[in-house]
Amino acid sequence: MLQRSFYERPVIQVARELIGCYLVREIDGEKLIGKIVETEAYAGPLDRAAHSYSNCPTERTKAMFQEAGHAYIYEMHTHALLNVVTGRVGQPHGVLIRAVEPIAGLEIIEQNRATVKRQIDWTNGPGKLTKAFNITKELYGHSLNESPLYIEDSERFVDIARSPRVGIANSGQAAHYPWRFFERNNAYVSAFRK
């Protein structure tokens, strides 16, 4: 399990180094495991695309101001999206987990995505992976250092690429920040759309 010190570092470094790590969700004694293959960094008050850009905690963003290593989960278009809080307390930076490659618990993942025909589409987007892993707003503020949701250490020698973030609109220059990281040539990376 990754220690809090991993998350206490700069958000862009954490976003890059989460690639190849394993997202683990425990449900009824079963472990659902996915290799993280895509992330995006959001640098709080410096970043117009971040929910915490105003640097003022709200009911929605209060988890972003907690200690590093907590889950910040929000809903967008009926999808829950999982973010990892990074940096120091009161420094509201976070990493969006955009895609994972399913590794274990495939039967449960398949049940959770029963309406999706192709396995490749189970977890190749931020809303898809939370449905597959049954990650809901009930886990908002959860410490990612303990069950039932945590992240384990990474594979070594993952070929990592970077690009601008996906779907950032009306954010001025923030739309062009190259703060999206992904495993090169991994089929579970979401399709890039400007």
Rank of each mutant, 00 (worst) to 15 (best):
R118A: 05
E138T: 14
A68E: 08
K131S: 01
G20S: 09
G94Q: 04
A68V: 05
P102L: 05
V95Y: 01
I120Y: 01
I103M: 15
L82M: 15
G87E: 05
Q119T: 11
L32W: 14
E110H: 12
A80T: 13
A63F: 05
L32R: 01
A114F: 02
A15R: 05
G69K: 02
N112D: 08
R88Y: 04
I108W: 11
Y74V: 09
I120S: 02
A71R: 01
T130H: 13
I97M: 03
G69P: 03
A15W: 06
Y42H: 08
A132V: 08
A49S: 13
R98H: 06
Q66S: 15
H77C: 07
K137R: 15
Q119H: 14
H93M: 13
L96F: 06
G127E: 13
S54Q: 13
G29E: 12
G34N: 01
A15Y: 06
T58F: 09
A114S: 13
I103S: 02
P92K: 04
K35L: 05
R88M: 11
Q91N: 15
A114N: 06
T39I: 04
R113E: 04
E75N: 09
A80L: 08
R98N: 03
D28I: 05
Y140D: 09
R25F: 13
R98F: 03
V85Q: 06
N55Q: 07
E110C: 02
N124Y: 02
G20M: 06
G90P: 08
C21W: 09
P45S: 09
G69V: 02
E110K: 11
E26N: 10
R88N: 15
T39F: 00
R48A: 10
T39L: 02
K31T: 01
R88C: 11
G90W: 00
A41T: 07
A104N: 08
C56N: 15
V100Q: 04
K62S: 07
P45R: 05
G44T: 05
A41H: 07
L82Q: 07
V37Y: 03
T78F: 14
G20Q: 05
S52T: 15
A68I: 08
G125R: 06
I135T: 10
I33W: 09
E26K: 15
V14P: 13
Y42T: 06
L46N: 14
V95D: 08
P57F: 06
Q66L: 08
N112S: 10
D121I: 01
E138P: 04
A43P: 00
M76F: 14
G125M: 12
N55E: 05
D47C: 13
Y22A: 00
S52A: 15
H93P: 04
T130F: 11
E75D: 05
V85A: 07
